[in-house]
Design a protein around this nucleic acid. Structure first.
Length: 481
RNA sequence: UCCCCGAUAGCUCAAUGGUAGAGCAACCGGCUGUUAACCGGUUUGUUGUAGGUUCGAGUCCUACUCGGGGAGCCA
C-alpha cells in the first residue's frame, strides 16, 4: 500500500497522453470535455487541463463505487481528479488512455446553465463569456501560443545580449503625440480643484482650469503609450535593451486590429542604424515563427486545420525567404504602376492607406515587407532626418492579413535637428529637457522599434480579431471581466 | 468617430405583412471500445429596447443599445 502511494504521482494531460507514460500509475486532474457512455458497462470521459490541445481519454468502469451516482452524471465543464493506470489505447485517436480506479468530482457544472457545449461556438459568443472561453480548444491554443512567443522573445533578446528593462507605466509627459492617453489621477472628479484665473488680490479670483498641482504627481499624468523615450535613455547607457509590457491607447478605435490595452515589445539599441534595425526586426520575427512552429506544433496544426488553412505553409515560406525592403518612394512607384483603382489617391507625400499596404504585402509581393524612409511630414519628431532632408529613417514591418506589426526608426541623435523637428511639429523642446539631454551629452546613433504582441499572435494563428488573442480584451466601451 | 450589415429557443440559423420553425444542446429511452459517437422521443420563445404605420408586424418606418465588416488612428 505504501509503495502504491509513493508510485502515485500527478501527471498533466500532456504527459499522460505520451506513450512513454504507459504502465504508470497516475493522478490526472482537469475539466471534462465530453462523456460517452457504453451500456457495455463503462464510460469514456475526456479531460483537458490546458497543458496541451489534446484530451486524455479516461475509461471509467461501472464497477467504480460512484459510477451510477456520479460518473454517469458528469457533464461538460465538470472538474475531476482521476486516479488510475495509463495504458495503451486499443482504438485510434490517442496513444494512451487512463483506466480509472477512482473518479472524484471536484466541481459540478450544471448542463442546463453551463454556457459551453461540446460543439463549436462563435467567437462573438465566446467573447461574452471571456472567463470561460480559456476552456475551449481555440483559446487554450492561443494562451499557449502567447506563452511561446513571450518565451521566444526573452530567449531571442537575451541570447543577443539585450537587457530586459522596465520603463514606467505612468508617465507625466504627453510625449510622441501618439494618440489619446488615459489620464491617471487621484483628484475627486466630483469636485475638481480649479486654479484661479486672476492672481489673488486683483479682484475676485475666477476658477478656470484644473489645478493639477493638487493631483498625486503635481502635474497631469497618463498611462504610457510607449516606453520608447525611457528605453532610449537606458539604451544610451547600457547598449541594447528591450521592454515587454502593457501599453495603453485611449483612441476610439473599433477595429479587429486595435486594443485600448495591449502588450508591446520595444527593443532599443545604441550604435544601431536603420539597416541594423531592420535586420534585427527580421531576425526577431523569424525566431518567433520558428519557435512557434517547433514548440507549439500541436496548436499550430490546430490553427492550420480549423482557423486558417494554409497557415503553416505560409509561415514556413515567410521563414525561408528574406523580408523585402522597399523604400516609401519605391512603394509609391509600385502603387502608381499597379493596374488598380484606388479609393484613396496615391502620391509622394501622402500617407499610405490600408488598401495600399494590403496591396503591397498581400497582392503584389505576398510576403512580409519592410517599408522604410518615409517623408518627414508623415512621421514623428524623433525619427532621424536623411541627408535628402525630405525623408526620415522610419521603418514599418507589414505582414499579409494583419498589416503593420512593427513600427520603428533610427532616432535623431543630433540635438539641433531634433529640436528643430519638435518645433516643426508644434512641440516645445523645453518640455523635453531630459530627452534632449541624451543628445546634449554623449549622443550616439541609435535605433529601435515597437512590436505589437497581439498582432503577432494574429499573424501566427490566423485568427481574425485581436479581441480573441488576448484573454480579457479592453476596447472602447468594454472592460468586462 | 464615420459608412455598410446584423440582432428570432441555451448555441447556430430559417420563417412572400397573416397561428414562430429546424439543427445542435438539455432531458428521457435505446444501442455501441466510444472519440464532434449513433438512433427514437420530450421540453424550450416578452423575435435586442422604445415608439410608430397597419385590420394584422419577426417582417415596414424612426430612435437607441449591442455585435460584425470596412475606414481613420496606430502596435
Amino acid at each position: 500500500m505504501k509503495g502504491r502511494i509513493i508510485d502515485m504521482h500527478k501527471l498533466s494531460v500532456q504527459q499522460a497522453r505520451q506513450s512513454e507514460s504507459i504502465g504508470q500509475q497516475a493522478i490526472v486532474q482537469g475539466w471534462i470535455r465530453t462523456r460517452r457512455d457504453s451500456k457495455g458497462g463503462f464510460s469514456f470521459l475526456e479531460i483537458n487541463d490546458g497543458s496541451c490541445q489534446g484530451n486524455l481519454q479516461v475509461v471509467a468502469d461501472a464497477q467504480l463505487a460512484n459510477y451510477e451516482t456520479e460518473v454517469k452524471k458528469i457533464s461538460v465543464g465538470c472538474s475531476v481528479s482521476i486516479e488510475g493506470a495509463i495504458k495503451a489505447s486499443p482504438a485510434k485517436g490517442q496513444a494512451t488512455e487512463l483506466h480509472a480506479q477512482s473518479v472524484r468530482v471536484l466541481g459540478w457544472a450544471d448542463p442546463e446553465t453551463y454556457p459551453l457545449q461540446k460543439k463549436g461556438h462563435s467567437f462573438e459568443f465566446l467573447r461574452t463569456i471571456a472567463h470561460l472561453r480559456p476552456r475551449t480548444n481555440t483559446f487554450g491554443a492561443i494562451a499557449r501560443l502567447r506563452n511561446c512567443v513571450s518565451k521566444s522573445t526573452h530567449d531571442f533578446f537575451q541570447e543577443q545580449g539585450f537587457l530586459y528593462i522596465h520603463p514606467p507605466i505612468i508617465t507625466a509627459s504627453d510625449c510622441e503625440g501618439a494618440g489619446e492617453l488615459f489620464k491617471v489621477t487621484t483628484l475627486n472628479l466630483q469636485q475638481v480643484p480649479l486654479k484661479s484665473a486672476v492672481p489673488p488680490g486683483q479682484g475676485q479670483p475666477v476658477p478656470s482650469e484644473v489645478d493639477f498641482h493638487k493631483d498625486f504627481f503635481h502635474k497631469p499624468a497618463y498611462l504610457t503609450v510607449s516606453g520608447q523615450l525611457q528605453a532610449e535613455a537606458l539604451a544610451c547607457a547600457l547598449g541594447k535593451v528591450y521592454t515587454f509590457g502593457p501599453t495603453f491607447r485611449a483612441e476610439n478605435s473599433n477595429t479587429p486590429r486595435h486594443l485600448a490595452e495591449f502588450w508591446m515589445i520595444e527593443p532599443e539599441m545604441a550604435f544601431f542604424d536603420l539597416e541594423d534595425n531592420m535586420a534585427l526586426a527580421e531576425a526577431y520575427i523569424k525566431r518567433i515563427i520558428r519557435d512557434a512552429l517547433n514548440q507549439c506544433q500541436e496548436d499550430m496544426r490546430f490553427f492550420n486545420d480549423r482557423i486558417d488553412q494554409g497557415l503553416i505553409e505560409r509561415l514556413e515560406k515567410n521563414l525561408n525567404s528574406p523580408f523585402l525592403r522597399i523604400s516609401y518612394t519605391e512603394a509609391i512607384q509600385h502603387l502608381e504602376a499597379a493596374n488598380q483603382a484606388w479609393e484613396f489617391p496615391i502620391g509622394w507625400g501622402r500617407d499610405l492607406q490600408s488598401e495600399h499596404e494590403r496591396y503591397l504585402t498581400e497582392k503584389k509581393f505576398g510576403s512580409p515587407l519592410i517599408l522604410h524612409d518615409y517623408p518627414r511630414s508623415l512621421k514623428p519628431f524623433y525619427m532621424r532626418v536623411n541627408d535628402d532632408g525630405k525623408t526620415v529613417r522610419a521603418m514599418d514591418v507589414l505582414v499579409p492579413g494583419v498589416g503593420e506589426i512593427i513600427g520603428g526608426s533610427q532616432r535623431e541623435e543630433r540635438l539641433e535637428v531634433l529640436a528643430e523637428r519638435m518645433k516643426e511639429q508644434g512641440l516645445d523642446p523645453a518640455t523635453y529637457g531630459w530627452y534632449l539631454d541624451l543628445r546634449r551629452f554623449g549622443t550616439v546613433p541609435h535605433s529601435g522599434f515597437g512590436l505589437g504582441l497581439e498582432r503577432v499572435i494574429l499573424f501566427l494563428s490566423g485568427m481574425a480579431n485581436i479581441r480573441d488573442v488576448i484573454p480579457f480584451p479592453r476596447t472602447p466601451g468594454n472592460a468586462e471581466f
